[in-house]
């Protein structure tokens, strides 16, 4: 490690997530997994678009969706994308405190998004739009719920990694984990961009 550009006290390499073979494998493997997730969500989107007008006499997309709430949810996720990238930048400066702080904010934003989504679903159920009420209902809750499930898994995963970080610190073993968790979080946000566009906005337009 004769790298003079590393200004930190420890000898962590500049891109610790790719410093070991295991790290590079994890990095690439996770990207490939995201490629598979792309097709997974595409199949769900295709199904939803095929069934979104099959309301079976229940409320339609125009009647149900409330744009202000979706807008708030979108902003929350966008901000969390920014905070997770700030966490990774802190990691690249070997700043564990910064990493923990920004991931902490990301997790909080993730939970508030989930809270908002649950509130939204409860609202819809009161309007008679349920998982079993129509093909549209099944497709809606499956697509949006799959995304929500990804958000839930993401916040729990990042939380577990944060707890590990307290004990293990930032090493070439933990760094790839933080890095791929952040990739996952960005991808979940990316899917949401299409959900608010295709499900909510296009649903409002008709």
């Amino acid at each position: 490690m004769s790298d003079t550009h590393v200004q930190t006290s420890t000898s962590l390499p500049p891109e610790p997530e790719k410093a070991t073979m295991e790290g590079r494998n994890k990095f690439l493997g996770f990207w490939l997994f995201l490629g598979a997730e792309t097709v997974l969500f595409a199949s769900l989107f295709g199904t939803y678009l095929g069934l979104r007008n099959s309301t079976n006499g229940g409320p339609t997309t125009q009647e149900l969706f409330s744009l202000p709430m979706v807008f708030v949810a979108t902003v929350i996720l966008l901000v969390s994308s920014l905070t997770s990238v700030l966490a990774i930048q802190a990691m690249h400066r070997n700043n564990m405190k910064g990493l923990q702080f920004w991931f902490g904010v990301t997790v909080l934003l993730g939970f508030s998004f989930l809270g908002l989504e649950i509130y939204e679903f409860v609202e819809y159920v009161h309007h008679g739009h349920t998982f079993t009420s129509s093909a549209f209902g099944s497709a809606f809750y499956t697509l949006v719920g799959f995304h929500g499930g990804h958000v839930l898994f993401g916040v729990l995963w990042i939380l577990v990694l944060q707890l590990q970080g307290i004990k293990k610190g930032l090493t070439v073993v933990t760094a790839p984990k933080y890095y791929v968790a952040s990739l996952y979080w960005h991808f979940v946000d990316l899917v949401w961009v299409f959900i608010f566009t295709v499900v909510y906005l296009m649903g409002k337009v008709g």
Binding site: S54, T132, S133, A135, S138, T142
Partner: peptide
């Protein structure tokens, strides 16, 4: 298992 209607034509499925 959960009563969804993706393939149930009577409920608008396909």
């Amino acid at each position: 298992l959960f009563g969804a209607n993706f393939f149930d034509v009577t409920m608008g499925g396909n």
